[in-house]
Every structure is written in structure tokens, then in C-alpha cells.
């Protein structure tokens, strides 16, 4: 849009390369407070995501261990010693498809397992059952039914424990941990959204003069909303970046301190977990943009 020349020709002004200033003031104490709050929330969300990933890995590892093993308790026949029955069971189970290795659990090893629970004194008099530990193949592990069938066909009286009960507990715990992590993430996202909504409302109220002038100059609600959307998307994105970097830093320190365990066996952080924080700035910026736009349009509608 051009206006006709009034009196002066100032060709030196053409192409002056001026960049228009921002329609909202840049400096704003609320922005600093908002960035701090959102950065803290982003930090929590990133830690929750990494914690969920590490927790999931731990649960998966435990489940894999449980799935990969079975324990067989052998009851010897009257004409057979317990050791012989156990040896025969181990031999039988070793030939079952899906079994990698089956070995008799020596009495010394069984006592070593029980010693922390029962102490030294009574172990010698304790009738310890004859156990066979079975290591199953990872690709196609044999199930309890196959093991039972093989033992029965060999004429062995035995009880197979495929750790199914523990496996179900571990898997349930992993699911619960995952759900909790998801809830923490959703809660922090909702809190961040609410922070943007409050900040946008405060910003609109504080900049009512600017908004009125923009509106009276012909700015549409979408234009005004766009101004706030860009401002809060930028602030939220920046906060997301700060939170993500802080979370990645803390996780890296935990990983370094934890050595080969990651951090603890229950939380085996991997370096790859740090990559989970990478979408955080973008997610935070998107959240900020959506919340600011929605709030602005809603409030402007109320002002009209």
C-alpha cells in the first residue's frame, strides 16, 4: 500500500534495510519467570522420560532373565537316590528342544543360596530338595508343559517352576512404572500449558494498550494471537531447551557415576536415553504456541 508523494522525494531512504521492531515489547519480567517455570517442568518431564526408559530396560532385563530360566524340583523314586534322579532329570531336560543347558544344582550352591536367609547353623540338618536349573534358548524357549512332558516320559516325578508368577509381577511392575512415567509427563505438560495460559492472560492484560492499538489499526484477532503465539512459543522453546540440557546433564552425571550398571540395577541408564530429551524444545514450543493462541483468541473474543 502506498500513499501519494506529498512534497518530498527521498530516494536515499529506499532500501534502507530497516527491520520492523517486535509488536510486543521484548523485555518482560514475566517471560523470565515463565521460562524458569517451564524449564523446571521440562526438566521433570525429561527426567520422567529417561527414568521410564531406564526402568523399562531394567524390567525387560529381569523378565528376559526369568523367561530364560526354569527350575525343576525332582522327587526321587524309592529305588533311586536323589542325586541319581536329579542327574537323570538334567540329562532328560538337556535333550528337550528349546533348552540350552540343564544342570543339577549342587548342594553347596543350594546352601550358599539359602545361607543369607537361614544362617549357618541349621543348613546341615535341613533336607534340601534336589534342584535342576534349566537355561532356555532365547529364540524359542521350551515352555513348562514341554519340560513336564519330557520328565513324565522319562518316568521322573518332578515339579517345573518356569518363574511365570514372578514374570507376571515384573511385567506388571514395568507397566505400572511406564504408566506413572506417562502420567508425570502428561502432568508436567499440562502444568506447562497452564503456565503459558496464565502468562498469556497476564501478558494480554498488561499489554492491553498495545492490543487495543493493534486492533484499532485493523489487526485481526488472528494477527494479535499470532504475535502472542510467536512470543510464547519462543519462550517455551527456550525453556524446553534449558530443561532438556539440564536433564541430559544430570542423566549424564548419573550414568558416569553409575559405571557399568548405568546408575543402579533398577535404573540402568544408557547413553542412548539422553537422546530422549531432544524433542523437548520442539514439544515445549508447540505446547506454548497452542496454549498462547487458544488463550489469546478466547480472551479477544471476550473483549470484542
Amino acid at each position: 500500500m502506498r500513499i501519494p508523494r506529498l512534497s518530498l522525494d527521498l530516494p536515499w531512504m529506499r532500501g534502507s534495510g530497516r527491520r520492523p521492531g517486535p509488536l510486543l515489547p521484548l523485555e518482560d519480567a514475566r517471560s523470565a519467570a515463565l521460562i524458569f517455570v517451564m524449564a523446571a517442568l521440562a526438566f521433570l518431564a525429561c527426567m520422567a522420560a529417561m527414568g521410564a526408559s531406564a526402568g523399562g530396560r531394567a524390567a525387560e532385563g529381569w523378565a528376559r532373565d526369568l523367561r530364560g530360566e526354569a527350575t525343576v524340583q525332582v522327587r526321587p523314586r524309592a529305588d533311586e537316590t536323589p542325586a541319581a534322579a536329579a542327574a537323570r532329570a538334567a540329562e532328560t531336560l538337556g535333550g528337550v528342544p528349546g533348552v540350552e543347558e540343564a544342570a543339577v544344582l549342587e548342594r553347596e550352591r543350594a546352601e550358599a543360596l539359602l545361607r543369607p536367609w537361614l544362617g549357618e547353623a541349621i543348613l546341615e540338618d535341613l533336607p534340601i530338595p534336589q534342584l535342576v536349573t534349566v537355561r532356555l534358548t532365547e529364540a524359542a524357549p521350551a515352555d513348562a508343559r514341554a519340560l513336564n512332558r519330557a520328565l513324565a516320559e522319562a518316568g521322573l516325578d518332578a515339579v517345573v517352576d518356569d518363574h511365570g508368577r514372578w514374570l507376571a509381577d515384573v511385567e506388571r511392575a514395568a507397566r505400572v512404572a511406564g504408566l506413572i512415567a506417562l502420567m508425570v509427563f502428561l502432568l508436567t505438560a499440562a502444568a506447562a500449558g497452564a503456565a503459558v495460559v496464565f502468562a498469556t492472560r497476564a501478558g494480554l492484560e498488561a499489554r492491553r494498550d498495545v492490543i487495543e492499538i493493534l486492533s484499532l489499526s485493523g489487526a485481526t484477532d488472528r494477527t494479535v494471537a499470532g504475535v502472542f503465539q510467536r512470543r510464547f512459543a519462543l519462550a517455551a522453546g527456550l525453556a524446553g531447551l534449558y530443561g532438556a540440557v539440564a536433564a541430559a546433564g544430570v542423566a549424564a552425571l548419573m550414568r558416569l557415576a553409575g559405571g557399568s550398571d548405568g546408575f543402579t540395577p533398577a535404573l540402568p541408564l544408557a547413553w542412548s536415553d539422553l537422546l530422549l530429551v531432544s524433542p523437548c524444545p520442539l514439544v515445549a514450543a508447540s505446547l506454548g504456541a497452542v496454549a498462547a493462541r487458544w488463550t489469546t483468541l478466547r480472551l479477544l473474543k471476550g473483549m470484542a
Binding site: 500500500m1 500513499i3 518530498l8 534502507s16 489499526s217
Partner: peptide, 30 residues
């Protein structure tokens, strides 16, 4: 608008109407 220069204040209606700075700079200056 206190946070905008005199130039940007004067240019505000053109900017809101979708004008580009390089197109209206001369008119605003004049």
C-alpha cells in the same frame, strides 16, 4: 507504542495491512 521507534509507530497501519518494510520505508520516511 513506547517500545517501537517513531518510524515503526508510523508504519504500524501499513504493517498490519500486510505491507513489507522495504515497500513502505520510503513513504513512512517521507
Amino acid at each position: 507504542l513506547d517500545h517501537l521507534t517513531a518510524f515503526d509507530n508510523a508504519a504500524l497501519p501499513l504493517r498490519i495491512a500486510g505491507g513489507r518494510a522495504r515497500d513502505y520505508a520510503a513513504d513512512v520516511a517521507e
